[in-house]
């Protein structure tokens, strides 16, 4: 899906060990270099997605996250640091990602995803990873992903649990197929350990890498749920809703 860009000798040295992965190789690395990914919110989950994708040599990350770093971010938002308290989160994220991988292109947007900006953000990328804490933001993102036919990794967590699926518009269920309206029980603030959002963040980064480089079996038409309290992992089939108001008429 993404274009292949030749690697420099320096990049070959940095990515050597992952290019040993079966079915990935230098061809896969070139695809990652040519790829762009939008991450909606670089909080507990999105920070880890961004960090892993930056380390893996993705070409461009578009990061959307409003607000300034707060003390209560620091137990899980690994791209935020104490010395950046009170300063824009997205700048902290950009600085930390550049430390890790100076070759990375970053488009830092100090806004959360909304109905107003979703189209323009989605246009810039090959794939989206949605890590937003509000269903309203996820619904706006899902609509644009379906309209623009972009793969969307939907990942979320709560307490010690998480769920993740990879949506390919027109082929597999979209968010609205699964969750047609905002669950009344969901609240803005939720219990979270960084190790839980980080676990699902690593899985989401791997999903993005597999889809972009075209290898392995992503969670398309499947939902993985897990609970780190008792280490139960379940992978189940999910189905499109033919009456879905977002993707029902998309083939």
């Amino acid at each position: 899906m993404s274009k292949r860009i030749p690697l420099t000798d320096e990049e070959r040295a940095v990515y050597e060990w992952q290019m040993w992965v079966d079915d990935f190789g230098e061809a896969g690395q070139k695809k990652l270099k040519g790829a762009s990914v939008l991450i909606s919110r670089v909080g507990g989950l999105g920070s880890v997605v961004a960090y892993e994708l930056a380390a893996a040599g993705i070409g461009t990350l578009v990061l959307a996250h409003a607000g300034n770093v707060k003390s209560s971010d620091l137990n899980r938002q690994l791209l935020m640091t104490h010395d950046w308290l009170g300063k824009p989160r997205v700048e902290s994220a950009e600085r930390r990602l550049k430390d890790l991988n100076p070759r990375l292109n970053i488009v830092a947007v100090a806004e959360n995803v909304s109905e107003e900006n979703a189209a323009g953000l989605v246009e810039q990328v090959d794939l989206i990873v949605d890590c937003a804490p509000l269903f309203e933001e996820r619904f706006a993102m899902n609509r644009q992903a379906v309209l623009q036919r972009k793969p969307l990794v939907e990942c979320a967590m709560f307490d010690l649990e998480a769920s993740i699926t990879t949506a390919l518009p027109g082929e597999t269920p979209c968010l609205a197929c699964l969750t047609p309206e905002k669950p009344a029980a969901w609240t803005r603030e939720f219990p979270v350990f960084g190790a839980v959002s980080g676990t699902v963040g690593c899985i989401a980064a791997m999903e993005a890498i597999k889809v972009l480089a075209g290898f392995g079996e992503p969670l398309t038409g499947k939902m993985l749920t897990f609970d780190l309290r008792d280490m139960t992992f379940s992978r189940r089939s999910i189905t499109r809703n033919p009456a879905c108001r977002v993707c029902g008429n998309v083939a």
Partner: peptide, 10 residues
Amino acid sequence: ITLMSPISGG
């Protein structure tokens, strides 16, 4: 039968 209320924590 598994029953799940969708989550959105990020």
